[in-house]
Nucleic acid binder design. Structure first.
Lengths: 142, 142
DNA sequence: TTAAGTGCAAATTATTTGCAGTAAG
DNA sequence: CTTACTGCAAATAATTTGCACTTAA
């Protein structure tokens, strides 16, 4: 899905946006660079990404950060993860995988998918099918 | 944990509240009756419980419904379940168990815990331990 | 009598939206 | 040019809180 072919970074971001049918605006390129610029998976909140953009001297309004994250999700470029009733997290990783949620700091990180083995799963009731299975491992400091 | 001994229903609710160190006020008894009055497990939102109370001709303010649900959770009588960024669900069932989330209707129900078998789980990283594992099976209509 | 609980209305927080201006194809 | 995108500020929605009043112990 992510074609990490060798090409100049900007072009990679442009095609990342294009694969979601989105125009490469200055703001989107800046946010995309922060999100997928280095190929690392990221878990951000809107406020967090807004702060990161500000830190990188990129001028993007908070409303645009919200709208852009929503656009990226609608375009299938990211996923929204719900773990904390009060804020939404956005994950650059696209496959269905488990998360660690650090209750003390509110940080969300990937849990190694290879170490999760579900031997049996409740079947979807009549008239429904499974869209996704969210597994959140809540951690507390010892 | 839930002692479903045969005694008059009101006394059951009073001791349910007492087990959480909470005073049996008229409002709490009314909400407790709606939540655990029949021993069935319930998944409610604050607004939903408020509507149910109104439907049962019980006068309880929305603020009190919120405060009471929070108090019940703090007292360990209920659990908060996060599945939908925008609203909180409160579950009368206390053990760690999987849920079905009906994406179309926003309804939350229990999934049979007996049908979930996790063969392997990512280990908690250094300095942390697992507080709880949330499994939410998201359903879509076929 | 006294600390806990209640209910309003106002405050907060995260997020969305209307709309006028700006930029991409 | 034409439509999508941006950014402010105002609007929303869920939830919390300040505070005067009520009630359980």
């Amino acid at each position: 899905m992510n074609d990490l072919t060798v090409q100049d970074p900007d072009a990679r971001l442009v095609s990342w946006l294009a694969s979601g049918g989105l125009r490469p605006t200055r703001q989107r390129l800046a946010l995309a660079a922060l999100l997928v610029g280095d190929g690392e998976d990221r878990h951000v909140t809107a406020e967090g990404l807004y702060a990161a953009a500000a830190g990188a001297a990129e001028k993007v309004s908070l409303a645009t950060v919200y709208n852009t994250l929503r656009a990226f999700c609608d375009a299938g470029l990211m996923n929204e993860v719900v773990v904390d009733g009060s804020r939404s997290y956005f994950d650059t990783r696209l496959d269905d995988h488990p998360h660690f949620y650090w209750e003390d700091s509110g940080r969300l990180t990937d849990a190694p998918a290879s170490q999760l083995k579900i031997a049996e799963l409740p079947a979807a009731p009549e008239g429904a099918e499974i869209a996704r299975v969210d597994v959140v491992i809540r951690l507390k400091r010892v």
